[in-house]
Amino acid sequence: MEGVVQNLVAEACAKHGNDSSALLPVLLELQERSGKHYVSREIAEEVARALEVTPGQVFEVVTYFAALSDKPRGKYLIQICESTACSVVGYNALLDWFKEELGLEVGQTDADGLFTLATTHCIGACDVAPAVRINNEVFGNLTREKVRELISERRAG
C-alpha cells in the first residue's frame, strides 16, 4: 500500500517539477486522482517528503485553498454558486432543488459517497446563472427538471 502512494506521488512530482513550486499542481492532481476530491494525510505526508517541504506547509496549503480538502468528499462534488449574479436570478431555488432531490444539506455527503452538496463563490458562468459546477463541468440555466436529470444520470453511473 505504501509503495502505491509513493509511486503516485513520485509520478505527479516528476510531471510538475520536483520543487516547492510544484506543490499546488501536485496536490490538485493527486486530489483529482483520489476519486474523492481530497488529499489524504498519507498523501500529504508523502508529498512533503518528495518535495522537501515541511508537512506543516502542505497541511496549511490544503486547508487554505478552497479547492483542496483534507476530508473525503463524494465522487460527484456539486457546487452551487452563491455569488452576486447567481443571487439576483434565484440561486436559492436552485439550492433547494438540489437539497430536496439529494436529501442533503450543504456540506453533507450521501451514504454511498456518490454526491457531496456544497456552495461556492462565482465560477465564471454568470451568463447562464444560476450556475452549478459538478466536478469539472459547469451547468447553467437550470430548471427543476434539468436538476433531476443531472442527478439521475450520475446515479445511473
Binding site: Y64, A66, A67, L68, T120, H121
Partner: peptide
C-alpha cells in the same frame, strides 16, 4: 500553465 486553487 499554472492553476490556482480557489482563492480570490
Amino acid at each position: 500553465l499554472f492553476s490556482g486553487a480557489g482563492a480570490y
